[in-house]
Design a protein around this nucleic acid. Sequence first.
RNA 1: GGAGGAAUGGCAGAGCGGUUUAAUGCACCGGUCUUGAAAACCGACGUACUGAAAGGUACCGGGGGUUCGAAUCCCUCUUCCUCCGCCA
Length: 424
Amino acid sequence: MLRTSFIRENLAQLKAGLLKRNFKEEDLQIVDQTLVLDDQRKALQTELDSTLATRNQLSGQIGDLFKSGQKDKATELRQEVSELKEKVAVLEQDLKNTVEELRQALYTIPNMPHESVPAGNTDEDNEVFKAWDGPLPQLPENARPHWELAKEKDLFDLELGVKITGSGFPLYRGKGARLQRALINFFLDEAAAAGYEEIVPPHLVNEETATATGQLPDKEGQMYYVNEDDLYLIPTAEVPVTNVYRDVILNEEDFPIKMTAYTPCFRREAGSYGAHVRGLNRVHQFDKVEIVQLQHPDKSYETLQQMLKHVEGILQKLELPYRILRLCGGDLGFTSALTFDFEVYSAAQDRWLEVSSVSNFEDFQANRLKLRYRTDKGTQLAHTLNGSALALARIYAALLENNQTNDGIVLPKVLHSYTGFTTI
RNA sequence: GGAGGAAUGGCAGAGCGGUUUAAUGCACCGGUCUUGAAAACCGACGUACUGAAAGGUACCGGGGGUUCGAAUCCCUCUUCCUCCGCCA
């Protein structure tokens, strides 16, 4: 959520940024609307405050009059003050309505894109920030996509997932399950080595938590919802992990705060079927190791670069061809100011698969989180960042496809100590 | 799931209708003293909104109510503690 003071001070720039996000010219009026509502809020607040000040003063007098035995005067004054009550009630209601209206308006405005974000409408307009310049895997002639390899070697079973749950819930077994766990442990070890504190968070979150990181009200339909208990299954560890610091005031020397977590991620992905979602390309439940940082605003873009390096390092160790995209305005997430996506080449499908998304949210999430730090001049909002390091299902797909040989699937060296086997 | 108790500033802990603009202690910060430190003493010590400032207003787990006036009384929700039941 943007601050109204920010909107006021950067109005033209913000509107230009929203146009980059495919806002229509006529939709920009919501931005002006927030300022009108904010003015209205201030006026109501001022009037309410001064009315309350009068009431408090008179109430004090009543107390004094009673004490000094001037009952008649006190009763008279009491009558007078009771008339203020109605005014207070009306003002309070108006203020409440205005604040709520303002909040709803702010909920509809996404983060302002960073100046480096390219214009564009769809994922086809994303900028290739770093292309792959190495060789692509040379596959044997009878190379097959990962879902066929998995079936032959009994690594995961989508039909069993359908039987047990429904479409998009893979069941891994045997070496397939072991590979999954090996990757999780490898990713967590990499994060730990980079100084991230490991967190095991709850996998269900309440409405307040989901709102603070921006999933609500924007992505309501993307999350699984447990009606009975009013809880949401997490779509990413970002949600519970970032909320660790909701309502916290840090000191400057606390930065950076680095946290990592492995969690399963649940996404409804409503309405996506067909060839692009075969196998593990898009599923409702997948495993992911997330890295999260809280940082001083002056250093957050430096940190973003560090996080890119971290993800790159992992992909290099896995010996996977990858490229980095800078997301265009139209593809940028609601809460993000700048996002880099990592794509891995999955050879048998001849497709680049998104395996990581690394973003700087600047103070957009921090504003909802009320995550601040102390300065000489009061408190300031911190910056939040996160990235996948890494998302499993697609990495898994690429590993199977790229490493298939006539002698089986040969795993990259770095995983051997984790899997306990070298070939599948 | 049932019965009882509780929730106050970073922590501990008073307050139970009007000098609460929340006592007091501890912690933290600044100062005096000291070669330095400790001790002692002095001072400052929350968040948010509003205002150029002085100041004003709100906040004692959340929400609602009673009252001229609520940390204090009432209702409700949440969380925690104790006991019972169930259980990995």
